[in-house]
Amino acid sequence: MTSKDVPTERSNGELINNQGTSIDSKTVDESSNKVKDVGNAQSSISTRESGALSTKPEQDIINKIVARYGNNVEVLYVRPSRMKIRVLPENMISIAGFIKENFGFDHAESVSGTDYPKDNQIEVVYHIGSYTVEELIPKILALSTRTNRDEPRLPSLISIFPSVEYHERETYEMIGAYFEGHPRMERFLLPEDWADIPPLRKDFRIKGR
C-alpha cells in the first residue's frame, strides 16, 4: 500500500501523489498506455481474484478519464472490478457527467462520508455502478472528493444521478457535509431535535467509550 492510500498520512488536499511528482506524468504513460502507480496498491491487498483477473478494462476506463481531465484526477487504485479516483469538489459534477455519458455508469450504490480530523478534511465517496452496460455491471467506480472539515460544502450530484437523493441526505446529517443544489438538506435518520455535532465525526464520542 502506498502512503497515499493511507488516510491519515495525507496532509493536504493538493493533487500530489506520495512521490511529489505531478499526477499525469506519473499515472499515464502514453507509450505503454497503462496506468502505473497502481500496482503497489494492489500488491499489498492481493485478493484471490487479483492474480487471475486482469485489470485491463478498468485501466482503460481510468485512462480515458485521465486523458480528459489530466491533472484534475488523482487515481488512487485500480483493482479487479474496483476503481477509485479523487477529484476536487468543483470538478465533481463535470466528471460525474463525463462518466455517465461516456461509459454508462447510471446509479450510485452508496455515498459515504469519512472524517479525517488530522488532515482537517472530510472525504465523500460515491460508489457508482451500472445496470445498463453489460461489461460495467460487476464494476464499481468510487468517485471521491475531499473538502475542508470546518465548512464542508460540496456540489450535489443529484442532477446527474437521482439515486443519490437519500444517500446525500444521510451523509449530510451523519458527517455534516452540505450538498449544494440538493432540494432538501434536512434530517433523515436522526431525530428532528438532534442538538449535537454530526455523529460520524471522530470527535463525537459514544458514552462510556
Binding site: M1, D5, V6, P7, T8, A41, S44, I45, R82, K84, E109, S110, S112, T114, V125, H127, I140, A142
Partner: peptide, 25 residues
C-alpha cells in the same frame, strides 16, 4: 491488515448488500 479499503457486496434477500470498510492499519 495494512491500511486500505475494501468494497464488497453480496446478494441478500433485499438486493445487493455492500460494505465499504476503511482500515488505518
Amino acid at each position: 491488515g495494512p491500511a486500505g479499503e475494501s468494497y464488497k457486496r453480496v446478494e441478500s434477500g433485499r438486493g445487493a448488500l455492500g460494505y465499504y470498510i476503511i482500515s488505518d492499519g
